[in-house]
Design a protein around this nucleic acid. Sequence first.
DNA 1: GTCTATACTGAGATAGAC
DNA 2: GTCTATCTCAGTATAGAC
Lengths: 206, 206
Amino acid sequence: MIDTRRRILDTAERLFGEQGYSTTSLRQIITTAEVNVAAVHYHFGSKEDLLDAIVLRKAGPVTAARLDLLDRAEAAAAPDPPCVDLILESFLLPTADVAQNNPAFALLMGRMLTEGMMPRIVEKHFQETAKRYVEAFARALPNLPREELLWRFHFMIGAMAHTICGSPTLRQIDSNCDFPTRMRRLVTFLAAAFRAPAENQPCDVR
Amino acid sequence: MIDTRRRILDTAERLFGEQGYSTTSLRQIITTAEVNVAAVHYHFGSKEDLLDAIVLRKAGPVTAARLDLLDRAEAAAAPDPPCVDLILESFLLPTADVAQNNPAFALLMGRMLTEGMMPRIVEKHFQETAKRYVEAFARALPNLPREELLWRFHFMIGAMAHTICGSPTLRQIDSNCDFPTRMRRLVTFLAAAFRAPAENQPCDVR
DNA sequence: GTCTATACTGAGATAGAC
DNA sequence: GTCTATCTCAGTATAGAC
């Protein structure tokens, strides 16, 4: 079949998201997708490279959407830097969009950001964007020491990843679990956090 | 040998932390610990139950330290509730202690909080403590809607877990990577975040 | 260029001898 | 309690059919 490759990608994306990467076997994928065992190795090389291809297919649009929103925010605020709320929105909302339309993949992406197992892939796809955002935050928060800013960026990634994943700590939360709403809550939360003065540091208003 | 069980526990704790849970095979553990393959199944039942036992051994003291610090903070502030900074410290510092003394186990714990694979274990050991803390935060932030509070608690867990894990996003951060310092930065960050007014909500001063 | 069949190694798990 | 042998299933590699 001509669409073997795509069928493997679609099936694996769904199963990885639903069950996790290590829990899902290639044999389950190829059975569900109705292809042969060797097909996945022919098309992708290995299980890890299959995951890589899945991420690649979706990460591109997300990154593009992020940078586009960031560009607009910067253009609108010029010559001043945009405020942290807008920077945060441009970073978080594209993720919420993908998550809303494709919950299984959202789970997978959230896990990848935290599962220490595949830093190679994460690094490849997110490191450049991360640098661009660190610069944007630095301009919006000029009084914040560089090191403090990098840590805060790191805290943000953790909160975002965990929010995408769902998780057991919030079984009690009954309503409003759609991703855009979550992300709006997260923006409010993180904006205040980023604006907090560093310890023994003057307050910073943007 | 009488200490077979302990040798398995120690070895597995170290290897799981260093390499991750799924990456580490039982065979590697039993080779390193110099015990037989079947010993782990005899003493623990399965690989997952072994992980469970490892967590159990360390989670108890951490939980105890947390609740002790929280009790003290509440007693000192009575009849008022303690401020969010102190609540956050009581939650985060015991984790930093363990992480500082046993980095490998810290990695493991951080991963467990995020790897969707073992929610059963996480839930068992952390759910009760979580409820206690949600109540403490609720008293410190009486104007915050319940649902918003639960989400913020969730964001906090994500930031904490990711901070314990290390991660690729902060290769650039060169100094001050010890856990207590990280956690103090995190307390500042999260305190401001928790105190942020909910959207269309009056500000809240504690 | 694609796909199939099949074999290889190593994983976790289990039954039963001692 | 401990160890050996063995089972099933995982990911991977390759030879060859179409």
